[in-house]
């Protein structure tokens, strides 16, 4: 465990808890894509199949349970909670995410570390996480503006490219120091482990992580601009 990874896990945890708290406290989920949340729940369920077969550490097991539990709680809230579900933008959240699931599964059948049940599902979860944000980005584009917390939620999930830029630009107001990006730490962690561990090669996770970053980069650019100009975020249609 290195500081990059720990910070990445904490940022990821905060982003999920912030979203869950926002939905639960305000009893509204407008601007949030249920499809993206369902994809994230699928990512965690398929990635942590080794939850009961491989014990790595208490930290590892607890975090897996928290990630699975909190994302399922978000999906439950948005689908079944009688008050929250009314504010779900069903007519805007129309991304056909089944294609993402099918595509990632097909890719995982071809590209994996080892052709076993667990490894194919692990690779599937890595690919799916890279594209899971797409329904949310499409929903943001359709709903036009970003309500404050949704934007911040995606911001917390964000990546090196613009988080460093935003960090540098707002270093003047330390109170606004945003939580670092989650995947940014993981990319730093992979670089760190590549140089410190002989047999460390996680090409599947690395490349998928970089694609994930690219997907976020454009969102961050517009988020940064709106934040800088203090205007509501308008993504180009």
């Amino acid at each position: 465990m290195n500081i990059f990874r720990f910070a990445g896990d904490m940022t990821h945890l905060i982003s999920i808890l912030v979203l869950l708290l926002k939905i639960y406290a305000t009893k509204t989920c407008s601007g949030i894509s249920l499809k993206t949340q369902e994809l994230y729940a699928l990512v965690f369920v398929t990635r942590y199949l080794d939850l009961f077969t491989d014990f790595i550490s208490v930290y590892n097991t607890v975090m897996k349970l928290v990630f699975i539990g909190s994302t399922l709680a978000i999906v439950w809230c948005m689908r079944l909670h009688r008050v929250v579900r009314r504010s779900y933008n069903r007519e805007l959240d129309t991304f056909r995410h089944y294609f993402l699931v099918a595509g990632c599964f097909a890719l995982a059948l071809v590209l994996h570390e080892k052709f076993t049940f667990q490894e194919v599902f692990w690779a599937f979860s890595i690919y799916l996480e890279a594209v899971a944000i797409l329904p949310q980005l499409v929903l943001l584009q359709r709903s036009g503006n970003v309500d404050n917390l949704t934007g911040q939620y995606i911001f917390f999930l964000g990546y090196l490219t613009f988080s460093v830029l935003i960090l540098l630009s707002c270093s003047s107001q330390p109170t606004e120091m945003p939580f670092w990006a989650y995947r940014a730490f993981y990319i730093l962690n992979w670089i760190y482990r590549y140089f410190t561990e002989q047999h460390f090669s996680r090409w599947i996770a690395c490349i998928s992580g970089l694609i994930q970053t690219a997907l976020y980069a454009d969102f961050f650019y517009y988020y940064f601009l709106s934040w800088k100009n203090n205007a509501t975020l308008k993504l180009p249609a």
Partner: peptide, 10 residues
């Protein structure tokens, strides 16, 4: 792990 590869990262 069971199938030889252990993913220690979350």
């Amino acid at each position: 792990s069971s199938n030889g590869i252990s993913h220690d990262e979350l």
